[in-house]
Design a protein around this nucleic acid. Structure first.
Length: 812
DNA sequence: CTCCCTCGAGTTCT
DNA sequence: CTCGAGGGAG
């Protein structure tokens, strides 16, 4: 027999045994026989590498480990489901039923039909993945990621024995399947037993175990964990008809050999009562199911009706998740600490007696702010109900007042001062717990802040940590712990100091830190030789070299990241990008007055003055200068965007100067009369009063100009605006911005472009992409399965383009 | 002035 | 993930 025939035969046999074992749960051969066949196949493939098939069972044992997961873009975005009844007391049967009636009514009203069928299914507590089969062969698997881009985990997914590497029956040319990777309860228990036996830490719950296994860079490790996959939808099918119903989709996938829940667990129901009955039935079965679930999912069964309902923001309107009430537990509040954030925000945190809830042990829970503590009246010593909100963030739900410690002390009707302090209502301290500066709470704001600013050790450490973070300067190896130590020991006072650290500094710091952290608790018991052995080790030097390399590598960040890294209040990733895109150079951002910044899209008065104030503060100026001196400089500075020029029109700037009574309309009239900002700046009081505008307006303007600082600000604003306009691309380059001032809305799936690509193209041409259609929308770009946005656009008379139309418009 | 949506900020645990 | 604030549209 030729090797290729032999390989094909072995592969088929092994996959059949696989199915028997993992899918049908009825093995026909002993494990030893299976292993023997697999080894034989492996040997043959090693001898004839060119004959290794893309669906060979040997792929299931994993190959060489990866350095990192590759990013992959989802052709069809992976959406999340909106949650029914997210914050109500879902334990109440009647309320639950009422909500289901409302959901069903909404759907029927939107569709204009008397009755809708819903395909219902358990909601798995696992990880969503997307699988691509081409001509029946599994070619790619990706995690959800942010919905648009995920990680390529193909090697790991191939190790899932119950998942076919080649589809059975007649597979379509291309098939994209959405489903959940999870670990069955029994596999989880077995894994944890093995972990314990090997002296490794057990996983907290099946979900974590599945996540940890799927995220292994070495697929050989994943192969030793037993993961499962359950399909819940088709994202795309080519070369075969797309089933007309959701239930049909699942049946079709099962027919191709892809696992899904048994039909009894995924019926179609036809009204709110059916949804309710299904919810109650699954809730009752929850403990007996072989996997963890956290609720149920309702989907409109007919695909035609799904398309009609369309999408809102990032969630389909034809589907909803109905989560089970979060598991709750009782514990006690041992202390209420106050944390100081990067912006000085003081956050009370409840330190709790450890309690296992929702799959993890919780010891901390944020109390958000003083009002929240007061509203719930949480006190030290209280017994509280804790749950994990959205199954992630621990939350104190309420206080069990009946269990509040009695103040009564036996034999007395008074109680000791200590008792009083322990059980009194909690109040935020008037001083910062770290630096002692006084605490201020702005009128109408929920958060209280430490006024220490730069002087506060906590704020400084947090600011430096923020600076080094992954989405900012991305300094490899500089974690929270070491930032704190560097600040504590005085090596780093401001961010520029990072760039002056030496090898010796870092080694000394690490030794001290390690000695403090590990040595302290067992200082006396540890023999001195051990300590020396640790210090003599080469590791601190290697670690320090790596960190220095990381710091050096961060010297040329994109401007947007540098701006974000500075930690200016109200300036996050998006605002930093706006600033970088429009102004192009750090110097322009630093010099821009608030009125100019407020002329940029999505920047209003609050953000603009936060920026202007930041750059005017001498400490900050010095810190930035020091950074530049240390060799930190944005790598991508460019001339201001051509789209900036229309934003700097005199009337826009005038309206943003903060002159009393100078509204947008008045500013436009004023601009047409004086022409430029510079000419207004030189007008004397009489000339201003003489302008043909209402007396109250000209008087307010004249008063404002009488203030020398204001007049100077106007002059410098005029100068900078002119400078920016001159520096921006002119004439022909300006024509490269055919979409300047136009607003687009995207809907549906475009044939070749992803949403992100289309957005980038539009923005590159100077256009703006908005989320929803309104009268101000210039064009709607509609793709396949466009929903309500298309209807609205038609109703409002907004022009509708397809992808070809968009490209044609760009080409002009 | 009142919605609605996006962005920023803070937080937990593995 | 959730809350609150800011920005912009109606």
């Amino acid at each position: 027999m030729t090797p290729d025939r032999k390989i094909a035969e072995l592969s088929a046999l092994i996959e059949r045994y696989n199915r028997e074992y993992y899918v049908e749960d009825a093995p026909t051969v002993p494990d030893a026989e299976y292993d023997r066949l697999l080894r034989e196949l492996e040997a043959l493939e090693t001898a004839h590498p060119e004959l290794r098939a893309p669906d060979s069972p040997t792929l299931r044992v994993g190959g060489a480990p990866l350095a990192a997961f590759e990013q992959v873009e989802h052709k069809v975005p992976m959406l999340s489901l909106s949650n029914l009844f997210s914050d109500m007391d879902a334990a109440d049967f009647a309320a639950r039923h009422a909500e289901l009636v409302a959901f069903d009514e909404r759907v029927r009203r939107e569709l204009g039909v008397p009755h809708v069928g819903y395909a219902v299914m358990p909601k798995f507590d696992g990880l969503a993945v997307s699988l691509v089969y081409e001509n029946g062969v599994l070619v790619r698997a990706a995690t959800r990621g942010d919905g648009a881009t995920g990680e390529n985990v193909t090697d790991n997914i191939r190790t899932i024995r119950s998942l076919p590497l080649r589809l059975t029956g007649t597979p379509p040319a291309r098939l994209e399947v959405r489903g959940e990777v999870l670990m069955l309860k029994k596999d989880f228990e077995r894994l944890n037993a093995a972990q314990l036996a090997a002296g490794d830490k057990p996983f907290a719950n099946p979900r974590n175990a599945a996540a940890g296994s799927l995220r292994q860079l070495d697929a050989r490790v994943t192969a030793t964990r037993r993961l499962s996959f359950f399909a819940y939808a088709i994202a795309e099918v080519e070369g075969a008809p797309w089933p007309a119903t959701h239930q049909g989709e699942i049946d079709y996938l099962v027919g191709l050999g892809i696992p899904a829940v048994p039909p009894a667990l995924r019926p179609v129901v036809d009204d709110a009562a059916g949804l309710a009955a299904y919810y109650e039935a699954i809730l009752a079965q929850r403990a007996t199911l072989p996997y963890e679930i956290d609720g149920v999912v309702y989907k409109v069964n007919q695909r035609a009706q799904q398309d009609k309902l369309g999408f809102v923001a990032r969630a389909p309107r034809f589907a909803a998740a109905h989560k089970f009430p979060a598991e709750e537990a009782l514990t006690t509040v041992e202390a209420i600490d106050v944390q100081v954030g990067r912006t000085g925000a003081l956050t009370p945190v409840a330190r709790l007696a450890p309690v296992f809830v929702g799959g993890v042990t919780v010891t901390n829970a944020t109390l958000h702010n003083e009002d929240e503590v007061q509203r719930k009246d949480v006190r030290v010593g209280d017994t509280v109900v804790v749950r994990r909100a959205g199954d992630v963030i621990p939350e104190v739900v309420s206080v069990v007042l009946a269990r509040r410690p009695m103040r009564a002390v036996p034999g007395a009707d008074l109680f000791s001062p200590a008792e009083v302090a322990l059980h009194d209502a909690w109040r935020l301290p008037g001083q910062c717990p770290v630096c002692g500066s006084h605490v201020v709470r702005e009128e109408g704001e929920a958060v209280a802040r430490c006024s220490g600013g730069f002087a506060c050790q906590a704020q400084r450490a947090q600011a430096i940590r923020h600076f080094a973070g992954r989405r900012m300067m991305d300094i490899d190896g500089l974690g929270e712990r070491y930032v704190e130590k560097l600040v504590d020991y005085g090596y780093v006072h401001r961010v520029a100091d990072l760039y002056r650290l030496t090898l010796a500094d870092l080694v000394a710091m690490k030794r001290r830190a390690d000695a403090e952290d590990s040595g302290e608790p067992q200082d006396d018991s540890a023999p001195p030789e051990d300590l020396f052995a640790a210090i003599d080790d080469k590791t601190p030097t290697r670690w320090a070299e790596n960190l220095l390399a990381g710091i050096a590598a961060s010297r040329r960040p994109p401007l947007a990241r540098l701006l974000f890294a500075l930690g200016i209040r109200h300036v996050g990733e998006a605002t930093a990008k706006t600033l970088a895109d429009y102004l192009g150079r750090l110097d322009y951002v630093r010099r821009a007055p608030a009125a100019l910044l407020a002329a940029l899209p999505d920047i209003g008065t609050v953000v603009a003055s936060s920026l202007a104030d930041f750059f005017a503060e001498p400490n900050n100026e010095a810190a930035i200068d020091a950074l530049l001196e240390a060799g930190v400089a944005p790598a991508d500075e460019h001339v201001p965007s051509a789209a900036l020029v229309p934003l700097l029109a005199p009337e826009r700037l005038l309206a943003r100067l903060g002159v009393p009574r100078l509204t947008e309309t008045r500013a436009a009239q004023l601009a047409s009369q004086v022409g430029t900002l510079a000419s207004l700046a030189v007008l004397d009081r009489r000339a201003v009063i003489g302008l043909p505008l209402p007396a109250e307006v000209v008087n307010a303007l004249a008063d404002w100009l009488d203030e020398p600082a204001n007049r100077a600000a106007l002059t410098s604003l005029a100068t900078l605006a002119d400078e920016l306009a001159d520096a921006a691309p002119q004439g022909e380059d300006g024509a490269a911005q055919p979409f300047a001032g136009l607003t687009f809305v995207l809907t549906g799936t475009l044939p070749t472009l992803t949403r992100d690509e289309a957005k980038t193209m539009i923005e590159a041409a100077g256009g703006k992409v908005a989320g929803s259609v309104s009268k101000k929308t210039d064009y709607l770009v509609a793709g396949e399965a466009a929903g309500s946005k298309l209807d609205k656009a038609t109703a409002l008379g907004v022009k509708v383009l397809d992808e070809a139309g968009l490209k044609a418009l760009l080409a002009i």
